[in-house]
Design a protein around this nucleic acid. Structure first.
Length: 571
DNA sequence: GCCGTTTTCGGCCCGACTGTTTTCAGTCG
């Protein structure tokens, strides 16, 4: 019985109520209550009175009390499940079907699940219903056939790749003034449903024609005057929504379609308080006079706010935070990259080549951190090869006066909790990153024992990819992150934000917590080739989402400061 | 169902698109 179960309970109530045709505001009240619980950092045990949370009133507070006392059951939910067949719930996910339509299908045609829906479509009973038609029926059949073929949302790593490919094509479209990413891609969410773009055009008609004829288009979904939706080909096909706007509306539209939805709701409330109406086209005062903006900075300034980075537009209080200038971390603060691999283990560039690539990023320093010997598959380094690598690093150092090179290792924490490299060698290295690459299925106790051995070791500076997750593929090992953060704070060990978009480990939510524990964060690309060094941008985005400040991130230190910090634990 | 320094009642974000209609409801983001 945890908070997640309760949140699920409230959300399920909302879903059932949609089919029952309840007042939409009542339905959204249950969703808001679920959200209030989700955004509260405390566990359920720590929340005494749920009714004190904004968005939870008397009614829901009583329901939560009942839920707690009744082992996760409530009278309301029991009634709802009696009244609404369970098989209707998944039908809400089919595109084009909402509560009203599903309810009608149930009441008029006795449809209770996907099979009876399919039957009714095949016998054309559906198209005879009021408000339905032949097209609706056909679309339902198509949706049923497509169902389950692709996950609803895809991992950001996949979507970034799709976006980059598409953008190469968008560059060739004529009569476009400029375009920008919007939506969850621009907010750099961990998973993304579809790709959104805002495009300022000289000739909308001409641009539309070119867009629907791009070579990667699999299907045109809709083709309106201000919005073109296409599906592009890939391992999974992806929907792309492109809004075509006039130059003067670009900033407002970009803001609107960057979202998040919750952020927009908060912004519209601010507008309303000022007797203005906010929409994608900008701001209208009560006399219908429209204000437009050069850019989003101007847009926010209109509301007395400082620019809120897209990643942090979550509807979680940022419209309060940014009433004052907030010193969030940015690319310009980053002075080095602390985690990368060369041909000495499983990287694809030599030391010299890697250093050349890193220099292109304008950093002051870098750390080379190949794998250690336990990771045989990656040709990890033993003590002897570490010493030889240090010699080569020294040779490169002597020729490289413009960038400081730290010698490091990404050392395995073995399954029994012992560390993979002898202490006397660790002492000679500048940077030691410790990480888990094996026995992922161990119990939390065993995993935490391994973490503990690394944390308390005086030579270990950073714990890499603390949860071991791979987005969309693997959950990671059972780590008690609260405990890990507490101990990282006590031992002055940094935790990694692995910037690889397949990992994003730690997540933004845990980074916020780490900051509360006063834990230092290392934004690491874990680069195995030159292109992966660019993942620093993704890492910075996640750090922005967590509203990390420069002094919480060790990449912002100068080489001298970092040297000092690396020594600090040993004293 | 929630909320309130104009309010304890009457609002609750806003607009586009589709498919159904023949002026609009439902869905979606």
């Amino acid at each position: 019985m945890n908070k997640k179960d309760l949140i699920g309970h409230l959300e399920t109530i909302a879903v059932y109520m949609e089919i029952k045709g309840e007042n939409p505001f009542k339905i959204s009240a249950y969703r808001k209550a679920a959200q209030a619980l989700e955004y509260d950092e405390r566990s359920l045990g720590e929340i005494d009175e749920a009714g004190t949370l904004k968005g939870i009133g008397k009614g829901t507070a009583a329901l939560i009390k009942e839920w707690r006392e009744n082992n996760g059951e409530t009278e309301l939910m029991n009634t709802l499940t009696e009244e609404v067949p369970e098989g209707l719930i998944p039908l809400l996910k089919l595109p084009g079907l909402g509560g009203k339509k599903v309810s009608k299908l149930y009441q008029e045609l006795d449809i209770t699940d996907r099979d009876s829906l399919e039957q009714a479509c095949l016998t054309h009973e559906v198209q005879s219903l009021e408000g339905f038609g032949a097209k609706t029926e056909q679309k339902i059949l198509e949706a049923l056939a497509e169902e389950g073929k692709r996950p609803e949302r895809l991992p950001i790593a996949y979507m970034l790749e799709m976006a980059q490919k598409l953008e190469a094509s968008l560059e060739t479209v004529r009569d476009v003034r400029k375009y920008a990413r919007a939506g969850s891609l621009r907010r750099v969410e961990e998973s993304v449903k579809d790709l959104d773009y805002i495009m300022s055009v000289k000739d909308a008609e001409h641009v539309r024609k070119q867009l629907v004829e791009l070579p990667e288009v699999a299907k045109v979904i809709n083709d309106g005057t201000s919005k073109v939706s296409i599906e592009i080909k890939g391992e999974y096909n992806v929907q792309v929504d492109i809004r075509l706007v006039e130059e003067e509306d670009f900033a407002s539209t970009l803001h609107h379609f960057t979202g998040s939805k919750d952020h927009n709701v908060q912004m519209r409330q601010l507008a309303k308080e000022r007797n203005e109406k906010l929409s994608e086209y900008g701001i209208e005062d009560k006399d219908g006079r429209k204000t437009t903006f050069q850019d989003e900075t101007e847009f926010y300034a209109h509301f007395g706010l400082y620019f809120i980075p897209p990643e942090a537009r979550l509807g979680r209080g940022e419209t309060d935070t940014f009433q004052e200038p907030y010193p969030y971390i940015e690319k310009k603060h980053i002075r080095g990259d602390l985690h990368m691999h060369t041909t000495w283990s499983d990287g694809s560039l030599s030391i010299r080549e890697m250093v050349e690539e890193v220099k292109k990023h304008g950093y002051e320093w870098l750390a080379l951190t190949d794998h250690s010997k336990y990771l045989r598959i990656a040709h990890g380094l033993d003590e002897d090869r570490i010493r030889r690598q240090m010699e080569e690093i020294q040779n490169v150092r002597e020729k490289e006066k413009n960038i400081q090179i730290f010698a490091g290792i990404e050392m395995d924490i073995r399954p029994d909790g012992t560390l993979d490299i002898d202490d006397d060698v660790l002492k000679e290295l500048d940077v030691v990153i410790a990480s888990i690459h094996s026995s992922f299925s161990q119990s939390e106790k065993e995993i935490m024992n391994r973490m503990e051995q690394a944390l308390k070791h005086p030579e270990v500076n950073v714990i890499a990819h603390p949860t071991g997750r791979l987005l969309g593929r693997r959950d990671g090992y059972k780590v008690d992150l609260d405990r890990l953060m507490k101990r990282a704070g006590e031992t002055n060990t940094a935790l990694e934000l692995n910037a690889n978009p397949n990992r994003l480990d730690l997540s933004a939510d845990w980074l916020r917590k780490a900051a509360e524990h006063d834990v230092r964060i290392a934004i690491n690309t874990d680069a195995h080739n030159s292109g992966m060094l660019d993942h620093m941008d993704v890492g910075i985005s996640i750090a922005k989402k967590a509203l990390l400040q420069p002094d919480q991130v060790i990449n912002t230190m100068s080489a001298e400061q970092l040297k000092k910090w690396l020594q600090h634990k040993k004293q």
